[in-house]
Amino acid sequence: MITFIIQRILQSVLVMLTVALIAFGLFRYVGDPINNMVGQDTSTEERAELRERLGLNDAFLVQFGRFAINAAQGEFGFSYQHRRPVSDLIVERLPATLELSLVSAILALFIGIPMGVYTAIRRNGAVSHAFMTLSLIGISLPTFLIGILLILFFGVILRWLPTFGRGDVVEIGGWTTGFLTASGLKSLIMPAITLALFQMTLIMRLVRAEMLEVLRTDFVKFGRARGLPDRYVHFVTALKNTLVPVITITGLQLGSIIAFAIITESVFQWPGMGLLFIQAIGEVDIPVMAAYLVLIAFFFVVINLVVDVLYYVVDPRLRVDRADSGGH
């Protein structure tokens, strides 16, 4: 178990270093950082001096090391566009994105999984067919279009819900939350649904496919042949076996919620990291792009680690080494 986790952590560190390298490459070599920091009228000597002071003349590895160490401490320098430390911007924007992603993830999981199980068990029922058709429409609707349609309907025509922003937020120890105000919650509804819908249909279809696969296995047939009731076969035998592959892919899906938040945030002008990032791309604001990249990679690595550990807990075949299994 411990070797396994250490192995995974080492792998994660490797991934983080790779991403940091890409981010550093972006930061250092795409465009000239000095040009972006100083005004037009700065003299060549001043530029050279700044270059020296910032360590841009040091060896590549030294520069990268400095970048990585700073990044590990959350330091990504100054945003070209906002003229403020990137870390400040991130801290300011992070709660919005995390709250939105959390609510969406909960929606996607708690609706998607039961729907998947249901459509697998009642494979030929009318409700299942309706769910399947809806889910196809669901994966055919681009996230931004869902947002636009919701805005048009509930925002413009019915005027029930706010169409942009987070509403009023409460600050608790540096964390701004929209959970505690009525307008904050109201503002959250449409973005959360927008973000959750695509993932939800994906999770539902995935769970259904995996469950159908398991229901065809010999051990399910043998379970039925021993007189185990459907309830047992479906929810004890099949569901547990379905979970093994579902955990992996669901983990990845949850990760992509944070990335898809970029789209949702830009449709609803939600003041999160995604909006920051997309504006940074438009303005070629490299430090912000680099920071976002590293941060997202960090989230993914953590999610993957959790998924691996969960996998380990669910599947005994990974826990027990084959070598010490009994013979004839």
Partner: peptide, 22 residues
């Protein structure tokens, strides 16, 4: 594996963004 842990849209955005800056 590494690429798969990042959603396609993010990678496409990034490449696009980099190309724009370069």
């Amino acid at each position: 594996d590494i690429q798969l842990s990042f959603p396609a849209i993010l990678i496409a955005l990034l490449i696009d963004g980099v190309a724009r800056s370069v």
